[in-house]
């Protein structure tokens, strides 16, 4: 009953128009943080209110939605957002990356390469890459405007000075098309190369911070580094214990209190797909 009381995809049409304008502007200026009038959503900040609003503004009834949280389709955040849009928009949902037209993600880019026509929506906690380096928002805006990004390298310098290498392993800053420095949301730096030249539209929504930024398809995004300490991706030095994949990003799972652990693909759809094709890892069972 109450489900019919909501407009399609929860937000009213005027709000969605406002968000779409911000999205268009963000796509027109890749990497630039566009302010938008973020609404209260029926979930707490930090649960993806920005991503949900961007998804709501993008959805049409024909869409097929996939929601992932840290790569997984079956964790709380993913399940509740997926159900939210099933109820308020009635769109079809899927767990298969290749079948989805809109994918809302928290902290991962799917392993399966995206294609043209897909939209990847990120949930962003803090869109400002300079936030913890320069606390004044007026100053960071000026630094973006004047392209003063030396401070970003001070952070990387500190990493090397303290840890002997660039220890930043997630939310790794990228420079978009040689202009804006962007925080790609807390995706592992393993995923950074996938940001660049991606055929899908990538939209980033930060609800609490009221900012939207975007990477249009085929946009160049270069991870910042030093000449003598080049950017390197990192992942756990193991294969997936369920599907045996060697090149996917892994989660470590503690299995008992005697030091037992296993490593599994963080992308559940990718892992399930491989197992269905007969790949078996160290601890996996043939299906």
């Amino acid at each position: 009953m109450t489900d019919q009381a909501y407009n399609f995809a929860y937000l009213d049409e005027q709000t969605k128009r406002m968000i779409r304008r911000a999205i268009l502007k963000a796509i027109a200026v890749p990497g630039y943080q566009v302010p938008f009038a973020s609404r209260e959503m029926p979930m707490p900040y930090g649960w993806g209110t920005g991503g949900v609003q961007v998804t709501a503004a993008c959805l049409v009834p024909e869409d097929r939605l996939k929601v992932i949280d840290q790569g997984a389709d079956d964790t709380t955040n993913a399940v509740s957002i997926r159900r939210f849009f099933q109820r308020t928009a009635g769109v079809a949902v899927t767990e298969v990356t290749a079948e989805a037209t809109v994918i809302q993600t928290r902290h991962r880019i799917p392993e399966t390469p995206l294609t043209e026509g897909q939209i990847l929506v990120y949930q962003v906690p803090i869109p400002e890459p300079l936030r913890f380096l320069e606390p004044r928002e007026t100053e960071t805006r000026k630094m973006h405007a004047l392209e003063e990004y030396g401070l970003m390298h001070v952070k990387l310098y500190e990493d090397i000075a303290r840890h002997g290498q660039i220890a930043t392993s997630y939310a790794y800053p990228v420079k978009v098309e040689g202009r804006y420095v962007m925080d790609p949301s807390p995706i592992p730096k393993f995923d950074n190369p996938k940001l660049s030249g991606n055929p899908a539209i990538q939209l980033f929504g930060a609800g609490r911070e009221q900012r939207i930024h975007a990477l249009p398809p085929w946009t160049k995004a270069v991870s910042l580094d030093f000449d003598d300490h080049p950017f390197q991706t990192s992942k756990a030095p193991h294969d997936c214990d369920l599907c045996g994949a060697r090149d996917s990003y892994l989660d470590e799972v503690i299995t008992d209190d005697a030091g037992g652990r296993m490593f599994v693909c963080s992308d559940t759809d990718f892992c399930a797909g491989r197992r269905a094709k007969g790949h078996v890892g160290r601890l996996g069972e043939a299906t």
Partner: peptide, 12 residues
């Protein structure tokens, strides 16, 4: 190093 990096130094 900050001022060096601000004017484009990129060699640690």
């Amino acid at each position: 190093g900050e001022r060096l990096m601000a004017v484009g130094a990129r060699h640690y």
